Simulated scan of single mutants.
Amino acid sequence: MKVVVDEDKCVAAGQCVSAAADVFDQREEDGIVVLLEESPPADVADDVRTAAAMCPALAIRIQE
């Protein structure tokens, strides 16, 4: 699994951090998504998929 984020699409809702805090964070100054782990381990794959599905701006893509 590879995770790709589009910071330009991000609306700083924070749903990704709620779903997968080991993989996503937010910048302090504006809340835009920060990708912590481009290739997360298999044990958090479901959380990452949930984060992508919950993103209101569709700023997270997953490449299997």
Rank of each mutant, 00 (worst) to 15 (best):
V17R: 02
C16Y: 02
V48R: 03
R27Q: 09
V33S: 06
V48E: 06
V33M: 08
V17D: 01
Q63D: 15
F24S: 00
C55R: 09
Q15M: 14
Q15E: 13
R27A: 05
L58C: 13
E29T: 13
D43I: 09
A59K: 00
A52T: 14
A52L: 10
P56K: 10
F24M: 01
C55P: 00
G31C: 01
D46T: 07
R27K: 14
D8L: 12
D47V: 06
E37A: 14
E38L: 04
Q26M: 11
C55M: 09
V33E: 04
I62M: 13
V33Q: 06
D43Q: 11
Q63I: 15
Q26L: 12
L58T: 14
D8E: 15
E7C: 04
E28R: 11
L58H: 15
G14I: 01
V33A: 07
V5H: 03
P56R: 13
E7D: 09
R49N: 14
E29R: 13
M1T: 12
Q15G: 12
G31K: 00
M1N: 09
V34E: 11
A51L: 03
C16I: 02
D25E: 14
A45F: 10
A59W: 04
E64Y: 05
K9T: 00
C55Q: 06
D30P: 05
A52Q: 15
G14E: 07
A59H: 03
A13G: 11
D30W: 01
A13C: 14
Q15D: 12
V17L: 02
E38N: 07
A19F: 09
C55V: 06
R61Q: 15
V33C: 07
D47L: 12
C55A: 07
Q63N: 13
P40M: 02
A42V: 15
L36T: 09
D43W: 08
M54E: 15
C10V: 02
Q26G: 08
R61F: 09
D47T: 05
M1D: 08
A21F: 10
R49F: 10
M54F: 12
V34L: 11
P40C: 02
R61H: 11
L36V: 08
S39P: 00
G14L: 02
C55W: 05
V44T: 07
V4E: 12
E7N: 10
K9C: 00
V48F: 03
D8K: 15
D8Q: 14
D46S: 10
A53P: 09
V44P: 06
V3A: 05
Q26F: 03
D30Q: 03
V34F: 05
A51N: 08
I60T: 03
D47S: 14
Q63C: 09
V5P: 05
A45S: 13
C16R: 07
A57L: 05
A13D: 11
V23M: 07
C16S: 03
I62F: 11
D22I: 00
V23E: 08
E28Y: 10
D30T: 03
A51W: 02
V3D: 01
Q15L: 13
A20E: 11
E64W: 06
T50D: 15
E38A: 15
A42P: 12
A51H: 09
V23I: 11
V33W: 04
R27C: 04
A12M: 04
R49C: 10
K2T: 12
Q63T: 14
Q26I: 04
S39C: 10
V44K: 00
G14Y: 02
